[in-house]
Design a protein around this nucleic acid. Structure first.
Length: 493
RNA sequence: GGCGCGUUAUCCAAGAGGCUAGGAGCCGGUCUGCAAAACCGUUAACGUCGGUUCGAAUCCGACACGCGCCUCCA
């Protein structure tokens, strides 16, 4: 097993070698807690969730840190709008964030620090930067002098001259260089503040991540993640701060997830084209959303639309139907009336056995290749197809075929654990899907049942015309009839 | 203007020089009174123009289109 990851710093896939063998330190930028999270946040959360899960699955002892930015202009603005204090806003949206991530089925990070709990560490780093000549005090603020750090912009591959040519940089009179950024901001009246050697104030945005990552992961650690939009300025500034203060490499591997798009445009607050996680979860369940996100590579853009979500749901339904069938076979066997007969596997069984043998090697090969979840899902689907064929073509379950079935089921559970899928029992998931769809119909269940009985009677009397009329009537109301040997049930189309 | 990414069949999507990706759909089959559902099977593609190579979706160049970052952003 040889994990390779795409490192933004080098623009290449590299062999992943942790600093300390067997251990991984990983820091991912969380959110600024001033509003509900949207699907873009969900993607970042889910992407790094499976990276976290896969690293653990690969045997690493992972320390995963994801922060809350709980002090920031936006939080203060929101508090002012509502006539309350920043803490109330921050705590409210921390709680909402936790709820959203839990409903998405994210594993809890090892540590979830808050910026405001690390003011001491922030001040220490700023002091070190001033001492080394990387930062300067200016009228109650402290700024980072970007020209003093030779590696500045190495992550985003730009240079200062070109950046300024962009001409959208404001020249603040407090700054020596227009690209200098605030490490500490003197507080204005009415704003929250902390004591510091430079007067009362609060930290700039970027410094908290340098402080918290160093606190929990040390001066140099393995993986730092976040959305692509954080590359500049946030991560670039983190590098300048941490490497400037510590004089050693900050992060070995930089991982960045792609955006969620709406009609090929980035989903964002400023464009107003966003959907919150809680709104989407009213229509689509968490596993469907996760499956949708996993169906594309984490660095690619991902277009969010009902059609794409529906397709994801169909795909997940296919896998869950197969797993439910496996569960049923296993359950039947748990109380057998007679022991299953012996006998060798037929040809389709041998083929499935080979799929089972290849399953984990292919799955890990896909995930080892920069967490290629889309390719990994392909392995699942191929196995599903072969399994369905095996079930359809196997007339009598022998001991060998039953053993194969439970083996396949176990493999899906194992892969599901890494991908965060199938945590809901497949049969339960399928029931939930049916119930969710049933919410949108106009016909009362009693009426449906009455019509089904009438149709059954008509069909028994060979009055197929009347039977088909009833079937069409129900279909017009979105009710799909499912005839089987056990009778007729219905579903919402 | 600078830097970067992308363009794969009807749609979504993997693919880092020769090896069936996968899913949804369409179509065909099994089942059915006929259907539906389910299952099985099958189909088709590499933006344009050049170049390198025995061989290119994959490497190189140009062009076109789309997107992102350069301002808070996952």
């Amino acid at each position: 097993m040889a994990l390779r990851v795409y490192n933004t710093l080098t623009s290449e896939k590299e062999l992943f070698v942790p600093l300390i063998p067997g251990r991984v330190g990983m820091y991912v930028c969380g959110v600024t807690v001033y509003d509900y999270c949207h699907i873009g946040h969900a993607r970042a959360g889910i992407v790094f969730d499976i990276i976290y899960r896969y690293l653990k699955y690969a045997g690493y002892d992972v320390t995963y840190v994801r922060n809350y930015t709980d002090i920031d202009d936006k939080i203060i603005n929101r508090a002012n709008q509502e006539g309350t204090d920043y803490r109330t806003i921050a705590d409210r949206y921390i709680e909402a964030f936790d709820e959203d991530m839990a409903s998405l089925g994210l594993a809890k990070p090892t540590v979830e620090p808050k910026a405001t709990d690390h003011i001491g560490g922030i001040i220490s780093i700023i002091e070190a930067l001033i001492a080394k000549g990387h930062a300067y005090v200016s009228a109650g603020d402290v700024y980072y002098a970007v020209e003093t750090f030779t590696g500045y912009l190495k992550l985003s591959g730009r240079n200062l001259e070109d950046m300024q040519a962009g001409a959208r940089v404001e020249v603040g009179d407090k700054k020596r260089h227009p690209m200098d950024f605030a490490l500490w901001k003197g507080s204005k009246p009415g704003e929250p503040w902390w004591h510091s050697p430079w007067g009362n104030g609060r930290p700039g945005w970027h410094i908290e991540c340098s402080a918290m990552s160093m606190e929990f992961l040390g001066k140099t650690f393995d993986i730092h993640g976040g959305g692509k939009d954080l590359v500049f300025p946030h991560h670039e500034n983190e590098i300048a701060q941490s490497e400037g203060a510590n004089g050693c490499q900050f992060v070995r591997y930089w991982l960045h997830n792609g955006f969620v798009n709406i009609n090929a445009e980035k989903m964002s607050k400023s464009l107003g084209n966003f959907f919150t996680i809680r709104d989407v979860l009213k229509t689509y369940d968490a596993e469907t959303l996760r499956f949708f996100i996993l169906s594309a590579h984490y660095r690619s853009p991902l277009d969010f639309s009902d059609q794409n979500l529906d397709e994801a749901r169909s795909g997940l339904e296919r896998i869950n139907s197969c797993l439910a069938a496996l569960d049923e076979i296993v359950a039947e066997q748990s109380a057998p009336r007679a022991p299953a007969p012996a006998g060798a596997l037929a040809e389709v069984g041998l083929e499935l056995q080979e799929k089972a043998d290849q399953f984990l090697p292919r799955f890990t090969e896909a995930m080892d290749d920069d967490f290629n979840s889309a390719l990994a899902l392909g392995v699942l689907f191929e196995t599903v197809r072969c399994t369905n064929r095996f079930i359809a073509e196997t007339k009598e379950m022998t001991q060998a075929s039953l053993a194969l079935i439970s083996r396949i089921r176990g493999l899906f559970a194992e892969a599901g654990g890494v991908l965060g899928l199938f945590s809901t029992a497949p049969a339960v998931w399928l029931e939930g899907l049916k119930a969710a769809k049933a919410g949108g119909i106009s016909m009362a269940p009693d009426e449906i049942e009455r019509l089904i009985v009438e149709r059954a009677e008509a069909r028994a009397a060979k009055n197929f015309k009347r039977g088909d009329e009833i079937r069409d009537l129900l279909l017009e109301n979105g009710i799909q009839l499912l005839d089987s040997a056990q009778g007729t049930t219905w579903n919402v189309k």
